[in-house]
């Protein structure tokens, strides 16, 4: 009896009813790894498939052999695209449009965010919400009225806006400015108000406070907004498809589809190569600025 009473607690201690913190953590980690690997496979398979296909000849692609293996690797697709003036033209159009859109977006959204978050004026908070609401309207709803507006503009002024690559410089900011402004409002809001008050007392005007204090301090947020604007501009498909038609006016995403799909003939090797090369610039930018991007997004998300 006495022995049993003495040994019982020991047994309990050896096999605790509830899991310890480290056991819980181990299982949480296992599940995390399981799902992370699952998602990584799911999301990496398409680009890997694109890479494999881009290294194949058309004959090998159409042959019913293992699609996940390259039997006769070739860089022919790359050589053809990179020497094609048409493809390089799309690339150039995309690059110009994206860079200029980023510049326009930053020039509008940074001062707008600063004004909305710091220069308290009548209706500023309503305006801030309004800016974000415009982002919630899908582009699929917008492109028809925009098309109509451009037609009217043409009627009134005689200036043709349809089928001009530079019209995308007006269209893309309708997508990028609201979101970038929202990110920057969140980021600027996380900067203590004493900082701009100190700058005001030190003798800075609003513009100097923005350029000398806010922009350097909010650099991670600024980079996050820049990456977002660039990615949206680079990958935008619907607007260029609707508003540009001539080959020399096309940007990369639409150019690949329209020039490499002829009727019902899909030039898969070159489509995959073109898409892969097209994905490279955002990928390179992400790789270099990933840390800034993450800190920028989280700051905006938690403190906005």
């Amino acid at each position: 009896m006495t022995d049993a009473a003495l040994t019982a607690p020991k047994k309990h201690a050896a096999n605790p009813r509830y899991g310890s913190m480290s056991r819980d953590r181990t299982w949480a980690l296992r599940w995390s790894y399981f799902f992370l690997i699952l998602f990584a496979i799911f999301f990496l398979l398409p680009p890997i498939y694109m890479l494999i296909t881009s290294l194949k000849t058309s004959a090998e692609i159409s042959a019913a052999r293992n699609p996940w293996w390259v039997f006769n690797p070739t860089l022919e697709n790359y050589r053809e695209l990179l020497t094609s003036p048409q493809y390089l033209g799309y690339f150039r159009n995309s690059a110009i449009v994206s860079v200029v859109v980023v510049v326009i977006t930053m020039l509008i959204s940074v001062p707008a965010a600063f004004a909305l978050s710091r220069m308290k004026f009548w209706g500023s908070s309503t305006l801030a919400t309004g800016v974000f609401l415009t982002y919630l309207i899908p582009e699929t709803l917008l492109f028809l009225p925009l098309f109509k507006m451009f037609a009217l503009f043409n009627e009134w002024t005689g200036i043709q806006l349809i089928n001009r690559w530079w019209v995308l410089l007006i269209l893309y900011p309708t997508l990028t400015v609201p979101f970038c402004t929202w990110i920057m409002i969140g980021y600027f809001a996380s900067i203590p108000k004493e900082l701009d008050e100190a700058a005001l007392i030190d003798g800075a005007g609003w513009m100097q406070t923005l350029t000398k204090i806010f922009i350097p301090v909010a650099l991670p947020g600024l980079i996050a907004a820049t990456i977002f604007a660039f990615t949206v501009s680079w990958a935008q498909f619907l607007y260029p498809l609707a508003f540009t038609t001539s080959t020399e006016q096309l940007v990369l995403p639409v150019g690949i589809i329209t020039s490499l799909i002829k009727g019902d003939v899909f030039n898969w090797g070159q489509i995959m190569t073109g898409a892969l090369l097209g994905a490279a610039p955002p990928l390179i930018i992400y790789a270099f600025l990933m840390d800034y991007y993450i800190s920028g997004l989280t700051a905006g998300a938690t403190k906005g």
């Binding site: 004493e194 900082l195 100190a198 005001l200 007392i201 204090i213 301090v217």
Partner: peptide
């Protein structure tokens, strides 16, 4: 900026 004053804040407000 035109009052010719200087202020020290609770949270320092250093840039």
């Amino acid at each position: 900026k035109d009052r010719d004053i200087a202020m020290v804040f609770q949270n320092y407000a250093l840039y």
